[in-house]
């Protein structure tokens, strides 16, 4: 991960319980997520949760080099793999939910993991995929609860929005209520 891309995100996460909205696309998007996980879990020794709505367990394992991360440092709520027909069972890293998972089941998994304690961050990857399955009203309610809930536990929240065109209404709504909005798309827009 190029440090200059990760720097603004890390800077925005300085205070505990920060909520950051990241707009990214293409290579910057993949690098930002993998770099962030590697940095927070690997270098800083934090524990966290990743809600994955677009990459399967195998893809995440490869992209995030999960085997190289400290044990139990990352819990992935995966709503993709089961839909692809992968015969996977829940394990120490992955919790598998079918797609489209009910948003409540995602919340319940977040509750379950955070109840165990020790988690300091939550990454949502990504808003753009959630938009395919849920209405703005549903996502608004979902994120309102999630952001409040994470704030209670002083967990950092990083929501990624993989943008290729104009921001969606929910993207605009979230960017207006979160602490910081970081745009990694550079001059590609």
């Amino acid at each position: 991960m190029a440090g200059k891309d990760l720097d603004p995100i890390k800077k925005a996460l300085k205070e505990q319980g920060s909520q950051v909205f990241v707009r990214a696309s293409g290579g910057s998007y993949i690098k930002a997520i993998s770099g962030l996980v590697e940095d927070m879990c690997g270098k800083e020794g934090q524990r966290g949760i990743l809600i994955s709505t677009q990459w399967s367990a195998n893809a995440i394992s490869r992209r995030l080099a999960i085997t190289k991360l400290p044990k139990n440092s990352l819990r992935v709520i995966d709503t993709v793999s089961l839909t692809m027909g992968s015969g996977l069972e829940n394990n120490d890293v992955f919790r598998f939910l079918p797609t489209p998972a009910s948003l409540e089941s995602i919340l319940m998994e977040v509750e379950r993991v955070s109840k165990r304690g020790g988690s300091s961050f939550l990454i949502v990857d990504s808003l753009s995929y959630l938009i395919k399955y849920y209405s703005q009203g549903q996502l608004s309610e979902f994120f309102q609860y999630l952001l409040n809930r994470m704030l209670e536990d002083e967990m950092d929240v990083i929501i990624f929005d993989q943008m290729i065109s104009d921001p969606s209404p929910i993207s605009l709504e979230l960017s207006s209520i979160m602490d910081r909005v970081i745009d990694l798309r550079g001059g590609k827009r």
Binding site: E104, L107, M108, E111, R112, S135, Q138, E141, F142, Y145
Partner: peptide, 19 residues
Amino acid sequence: YVLDISRDGVMMAPRIRRL
């Protein structure tokens, strides 16, 4: 609210309705 009942106990999350 949605209920999740397991050996560990009962958990709740808000019910998010379709429009």
